[in-house]
Nucleic acid binder design. Sequence first.
DNA 1: TCTGTATTTCTACATATATGGAAATATACG
DNA 2: CGTATATTTCCATATATGTAGAAATACAGA
Lengths: 115, 115
Amino acid sequence: MAEDAELIRYADMLAAMGTEPRLRIVRLLLSAHPAGMVVGEIGEELGIPNSTLSHHLDKLKNENLVTVKREGVFLRYMANNEALQELLAFLYAECCTRNRVVEPKKVTCCGKERS
Amino acid sequence: MAEDAELIRYADMLAAMGTEPRLRIVRLLLSAHPAGMVVGEIGEELGIPNSTLSHHLDKLKNENLVTVKREGVFLRYMANNEALQELLAFLYAECCTRNRVVEPKKVTCCGKERS
DNA sequence: TCTGTATTTCTACATATATGGAAATATACG
DNA sequence: CGTATATTTCCATATATGTAGAAATACAGA
């Protein structure tokens, strides 16, 4: 069923972000949104070698978490807000709406808060 | 710094959920919250062999996404709302608060919605 | 203590992943 | 066309991961 495909897609997205360098990349692109960043800038900022970075960006692109556009010699990567929104909405729904496991306020308010 | 440790922890949590069987397990435990479920029930519901399931539960437990308590011969697993809250709050903050990449409403309202 | 049931650990293996140096490709520009 | 720069692809390799059958362990109850 389509349910399955959707769940697998979300699992793949989570896996794509489930690595230190890639979570760092996503976070960096979020902070640079909507301008995005060129591969070289990302690599320099995070200290990741060319080929390694290319692999990580490829994975993020495959899971649709980032988009690319060419600018002459450069490739500019941007966080894909649509995909991130879908993933967040899925998690929020599972945790806060469908099942009242996590209090909505604790997610949307203030970032960090106790108990 | 502590920042790093935190990011790595979130990456590990994402990785723990970044697999079809484990995302299914988490989702199942969320729907069974707060009662939780016994290992046998989970395995039967999802059709996962004993030893495989045990490894997956172990991983989720290591990342603190689930908690266990013994009930005689049975082990009862429960979704850990605190950890899930922290992860969701982190993602929400990154996407919606620190950077206005995803509109808050699109996450918290109605689950699925267009554009 | 013996027995039965639940769950884990042991063991094995195939596959996937992360990493990065070196070579190849793509684009711009003179 | 030749050169320079950005990025990818090729290649290799180490490590991690997912899977699961079979044996071991943990607990309860007779």
